[in-house]
């Protein structure tokens, strides 16, 4: 479904050029849920944005459903295949657009018809219901906003969903609801996920395989069983797992 080979992403121009991602390669088969973990600044979100076409300064290969993508322009078919859910539900919804406006614009852009019926179905799908249709973002809680953002991503009926820390801005009880929703949607629509998170427990819960990143490089790609058992190959991964198990008094 997704192939990333020798991906380099940089920002700025020499001498101030920052290499955010260096030589990253991984593949995600259809239907899999793949995690990208690492500390802040490790380049995990940058990879996701490069895949989505939101960053154009990259080299290497990004192929979606077998089709290589260019850095500059993405076509209509790409937007119908790949969609993204952002980290901060407070920043990813336009403050002056109601839920109805967000979803109907999205559906129109994706060339859908029968807009009102589709909106109702999308809202049902993400567990919000029609009563939320005419609310503005400031009338929604964080979890409800993230559900709207997920509905927006699903409007195009994509096959690959990029999830950028979808629950890190939410309370744990709401996180559980959103993670359950994402799991249900994947099962129902046969979606492929690429999920970025700094929380190993969340990735362990959601993903089948994961890549561990450090300072712009992928240090290790491992299965989720290895993560749970703590049998990582690399020292850095073992440290990360140990640190995520909690605080041990020095």
């Amino acid at each position: 479904m997704l192939t990333v080979e020798n991906l380099n992403v940089w920002f700025g121009h020499p001498p101030d050029r920052v290499d955010a991602v260096q030589d990253a390669s991984f593949t995600v088969p259809q239907g899999e849920s793949f995690g990208l973990v690492g500390e802040s600044g490790s380049g995990k979100s940058t990879i996701l944005r490069a895949i989505a076409g939101l960053i154009d300064t990259w080299s290497g290969t990004i192929a979606v459903a077998g089709k290589p993508q260019s850095a500059r322009k993405r076509d209509r078919a790409f937007f119908k295949t790949v969609q993204m859910v952002f980290q901060d539900p407070y920043a990813s919804l336009h403050p002056r657009h109601s839920v109805d406006a967000v979803l109907s614009e999205t559906l129109r852009l994706q060339g859908m018809d029968d807009i009102d019926r589709r909106i109702a179905r999308l809202l049902d799908d993400v567990g919000l219901g029609r009563g939320f249709c005419f609310r503005y973002p400031h009338q929604l809680s964080g979890g409800q906003r993230q559900r709207v953002a997920i509905a927006r991503a699903l409007a195009a009926e994509p096959r690959l969903l990029l999830l950028d820390e979808p629950t890190s801005a939410l309370d744990v009880s709401v996180q559980a609801e959103i993670l359950n929703l994402l799991a249900d949607l994947r099962a129902e629509h046969g979606l492929t996920y690429v999920m970025v998170s700094h929380d190993l427990a969340v990735v362990g819960h959601m993903c089948d395989r994961l890549a561990v990143m450090q300072a712009g490089r992928i240090v290790e790609v491992m299965g989720v069983t290895a993560l749970r058992q703590g049998t990582a190959q690399q020292e850095y991964t073992r440290q990360l797992i140990a640190a995520s198990r909690g605080y041990a008094r020095a």
Partner: peptide
């Protein structure tokens, strides 16, 4: 992020300008 999200729906620069940036 909401501009990025609209861009991911295939919204062109004119639409982003008129519908998303102007109202703000």
């Amino acid at each position: 992020d909401f501009i990025a999200a609209a861009r991911l729906q295939g919204a062109g620069p004119l639409r982003l300008l008129v519908k998303h940036i102007w109202p703000l």
